[in-house]
Nucleic acid binder design. Structure first.
Length: 241
DNA sequence: TCGTCTGCTATGTCGACATC
DNA sequence: GATGTCGACATAGCAGACGA
């Protein structure tokens, strides 16, 4: 216990709370115990059964609090990510929490990492034909704006361009992707209908809940869509054995 | 339709015990 | 004796199920 208390690598819950309060004033010991009960962290125990938080535990907790605060993600989704092999690798490699956060879903990654690019910059960066980018804009797959004669591509759309490039290797043309854009619009409208009562509320917690529900539905609907797609493909493969 | 029960999420509180 | 920590239980707000 004495050793645990005095080493920098491991601290008790009270000391950890003091540190975390500098960034997260609302943090409490009950919250840390709750995170443990939900399997998001597993602090070791001293001889007196006190929790002992190691550097890795602290990293995990910082990560959890950060994504909760910034992305409103529910704990089960955070748990899924934090217990993945990818995250273990991050810990082993000693990479920063910021890097881990960037990996939490491409949508967040792109928001943090990608800056707006001109059409020319994007063309060079991804080695694309101008006509390919023009088609993506024309078919409303990505958004662009005119800035003093330069075509600017929204940073959030760059991942979409990358994926479109990948799909083109299979002979999938931009015009085919419009079908998916239409699906996305319909799915988004569906989600909007569901969360509208929450988002139109003046209560902050309901507003926050609306964001959480939207993120969850994005994940669940993507998963659901994937399962249906897989099911149909299996049928086809069975038929054509 | 209404009331009640149950479950979920994300904490907060409490009394007992350990440590400083 | 003050402070820190424990596990158990309580709470708030919401949603869904179910019976009357």
């Amino acid at each position: 216990m004495e050793k645990d208390k005095n080493t920098i690598d491991s601290i008790t819950i009270g000391k950890l709370i003091k540190e975390l309060k500098k960034t997260y004033p609302d943090i409490s010991s009950s919250k840390l115990r709750f995170l443990e009960s939900q399997g998001l962290v597993s602090p070791k125990r001293a001889l007196n059964k006190y929790r002992v938080y190691t550097k890795n535990d602290i990293k995990r907790i910082n990560f959890i609090l950060k994504v909760q605060k910034d992305f409103y993600l529910p704990l089960d989704i955070i748990k899924e990510k934090i217990n993945s092999k990818e995250f273990e690798k991050y810990f082993k490699d000693g990479k920063s929490i910021e890097n881990m956060q960037l990996d939490l879903g491409k949508e967040f990654k792109e928001k943090q990492k990608n800056k707006d690019l001109t059409s020319d910059e994007l063309k060079k960066k991804l080695k694309l034909a101008q006509s390919f980018i023009d088609d993506l804009i024309d078919y409303n797959i990505i958004e662009s704006r005119d800035d003093n004669g330069k075509i600017i591509i929204n940073g959030d759309d760059i991942q979409i361009v990358k994926m479109a490039k990948e799909l083109s290797k299979y002979g999938i043309h931009v015009k085919h992707l419009q079908m998916f854009e239409n699906f996305a619009i319909r799915h988004s409208s569906f989600i909007q209908q569901i969360i509208m009562p929450l988002m139109s509320s003046s209560k902050k917690d309901l507003h926050r809940k609306g964001k959480k529900v939207a993120l969850r539905l994005e994940n669940d609907l993507s998963l659901f869509h994937g399962l249906l797609l897989r099911k149909e493909n299996r049928k086809f493969l069975e038929k054509n054995k």
